[in-house]
């Protein structure tokens, strides 16, 4: 079986690299697709703009979504993803610096599957990513509609 991709929506190149390394360390083999803002994330998911021509049936296994993003912010992306028939069942993990309770409430209200605050301590982050990979990529059964 071919591994499905992980869509990382992250505007900070450092965080992108750290996430990539953390996945590497946790032995997650899925390909990491990185988009830099909310609009690009939507373009990828719906095969528009830069990603026109991409097979729209190839949905990522999980979306790792930062909240504070240029152009279209994370919560808006989440809202659109949940509103669209094609993507509404996709697992979305909010992965953000914010510890604000309001962000947590908003994320879950809009249908986020999980909320992870990126810790300053890198080792804790690696551990979080390891568990995330274990759960969303190995253990979790996604709805049949999403299986290709």
């Amino acid at each position: 079986m071919k591994y499905k991709v992980i869509l990382l929506v992250e505007d900070n190149p450092d965080d992108e690299e750290l996430t990539r390394l953390a996945f590497e360390e946790s032995r997650v083999a899925n390909k990491l697709v990185v988009v830099r803002d909310g609009q690009e994330a939507l373009d990828y998911l719906f095969a528009t703009g830069k990603y026109a021509g991409r097979d729209v049936n190839e949905m990522p296994q999980v979306i790792l979504l930062d909240l504070k993003l240029p152009k279209v912010d994370g919560l808006e992306v989440l809202h659109i993803v949940r509103a669209d028939e094609r993507t509404r069942l996709l697992p979305v993990v909010v992965l953000t610096s914010s510890k604000e309770e309001q962000d947590l409430i908003d994320s879950y209200s809009l249908g986020a599957n999980s909320y992870i605050q990126k810790p300053v301590d890198y080792l804790q982050f690696v551990e979080a990513v390891r568990q995330l990979g274990l759960y969303w990529l190995v253990l979790n059964q996604t709805a049949n509609a999403l299986q290709t």
Binding site: D14, K68, S97, K99, K118, L123
Partner: peptide, 17 residues
């Protein structure tokens, strides 16, 4: 909460790496 912590993550993360 958001922006001040981000650089710290880079510092800690890359040091660890």
């Amino acid at each position: 909460s958001h922006d001040l912590r981000a650089p710290l993550r880079s510092i800690d993360g890359f040091s660890q790496i």
